[in-house]
Design a protein around this nucleic acid. Structure first.
Length: 480
DNA sequence: CTAGCCTTGATC
DNA sequence: GATCAAGGCTAG
């Protein structure tokens, strides 16, 4: 048993002098503080040109264009909206065009830097290591699966009859994930920009550098900078990135309805060929959930900026972790102690599972339950779960990533966001963050075991085939 | 128009 | 003198 991965697979927090961050406007590399916050060089220049020359832009679409590194040139209107939205300050552009020197934002930049240093020191002091999945050494995974041609036009609604595992091994379909990933629904999940007319620079912002420093739970926090909340001005303050993560989340009710509908469709198709076991039905459920996990990733902030090849590598690496987290989250948020709540809304008695499960499965369920209990005691919330999903997805330990620095930076930002959130919501601050990271480790470890288990079941022909689940089971090992 | 690099100058 | 966020310059 491998409760925790070995040190070789762990990712330590680096002690770099410069913490690399992402431009809140486009996700490019930050070059320094510009007009009120850390941005990249190009957005700095863009903001300067726009304000200095009093430029007026018009959006050709719905004023909600996605702004990222590759598309930032396409719509200056939405780019400028986003500049304002994330907090770039008009008043930092000098009317007299005087060069050099310092402006009134200097002290604010200094405090922000101090906060970041403090946060970094806290993380280091806590001695955390973010554990990642160890390389899978199970001999069952060493097989070489040859892919042949032929893609499903739409795997989600595919009614191609399911084949047996034996046949699958001979004619394994190539990854359907690659057909799911290319973005083909522009505008579906774009960054929300407030319209310019609705945006007002509040006078309190201009006084920020003269206001007295605030502290929370012994940790200095410049809340105007870190906890700006344009989405919901009346709610509790929380890191903007956490709100963005939550915004990316899938609606549970919608998920339940869609998966139930698809399962009925799949099941009727399957039953024409043979009876489906309970285990098979669970696999179909997991399979359908995977489609939604891919959908979630595809429309998520940062992920959609990645090349499809990197997207596939990340998903192939963390699918089982995300799937397990999905199942576990459901138990934590809708907790009934003696039963497991399925994605379809059905409940299965734990005693029923225990009486039918093999020792391996029983042990997996047991460990899963223990993790649910730990998270329940912690009262983990949606915001924290949303951060954890991003921590799992943006795993910088995945091999041969094209844009590794970007993924590393997102991982760091997600960690930072989770830390800030826990500091801001919990009186035990650092303790809570460490507890959550320990749960994350356990989740990773558990998902590896679950994947091994599933793989063995697949080899014995018990997993319905030609689906995303099978592709994922095969993929991690064919990449290696 | 964009974005990378350069120059400037107040503050430390 | 070093720093670093302003504005400036310019090839692409």
């Amino acid at each position: 048993m491998l409760p925790f991965p070995g040190p070789s697979s762990s990712m330590e927090y680096r002690h770099d002098v410069d913490v690399e961050e992402l431009c809140p406007v486009c996700g490019d590399k930050v070059s320094g503080y510009h007009y009120g916050l850390l941005t990249c060089e190009s957005c700095k220049g863009f903001f300067k040109r726009t304000v200095q020359n009093n430029k007026k832009y018009i959006c050709a679409e719905n004023q909600e264009c996605r702004i990222d590194k590759t598309q930032r040139k396409r719509c200056p209107f939405c780019r400028f909206q986003k500049c304002l939205h994330v907090g770039m300050r008009l008043e930092a552009v000098r009317a007299d065009r005087m060069r050099g020197g310092r402006n009134k934002f200097g002290p604010m930049y200094k405090r922000d830097r101090a906060l970041k240093q403090q946060r970094k020191a806290l993380i280091q002091a806590s001695g955390f290591r973010i554990e990642s999945s160890p390389p899978v050494v199970s001999s069952a995974h060493q097989r070489d699966f040859t892919c042949t041609g032929g893609l499903h036009p739409d795997p989600i609604f595919s009614t191609i009859p399911l084949t047996t595992a034996q046949n699958d091994r001979i004619s394994y379909q190539p990854p359907s994930l690659c057909t799911l990933l290319p973005s083909n629904s522009p505008g579906a999940t774009q960054y929300q920009c407030t319209s310019f007319s609705n945006w007002t620079i509040k006078s309190e912002h201009t006084n920020i550098c003269t206001s007295s420093p605030r502290s929370a739970a012994g940790i200095y926090i410049d809340s105007d900078k870190v906890y700006s909340r344009p989405f919901s001005p009346h709610g509790p303050r929380m890191p903007q990135l956490v709100m963005e993560f939550v915004r990316c989340d899938t609606d549970e009710l919608q998920l339940q309805n869609k998966i139930t509908a698809r399962l009925q469709q799949e099941q009727s198709s399957w039953e024409k060929h043979r009876n489906l076991s309970t285990f098979g039905l669970m696999c179909l459920m997991a399979d359908q959930t995977l489609f939604f996990i891919v959908e979630w990733a595809r429309r998520s902030i940062f992920f959609k900026q990645l090349k499809v090849t990197d997207q596939m590598k990340l998903l192939h690496s963390c699918w089982s972790e995300l799937l397990l987290l999905d199942i576990i989250s459901r138990q934590v948020l809708n907790s009934k102690e003696d039963s497991v709540l399925l994605v379809t809304g059905q409940e299965v008695e734990l005693s029923a599972i225990a009486s039918h499960a093999s020792p391996t499965l029983a042990s997996l369920v047991q460990r899963g339950q223990e993790l649910v209990e730990r998270l329940t005691i912690l009262k983990v919330d949606r915001e924290e779960l949303a951060c954890i999903k991003f921590l799992l997805l943006f795993n910088p330990d995945v091999k041969q990533l094209e844009d590794h620095p970007f993924i590393e930076r997102v991982q760091e930002q997600a960690e930072g966001a989770l830390l800030e959130y826990t500091l801001c919501t919990s009186s035990q601050y650092l303790g809570r963050f460490s507890q959550l990271l320990l749960c994350l480790s356990e989740l990773r470890s558990l998902s590896t075991l679950a994947e091994d288990y599933l793989y063995c079941k697949h080899l014995s022909g018990e997993v319905p085939c030609n689906n995303l689940l099978i592709e994922m089971l095969h993929a991690k090992h064919s990449w290696a």
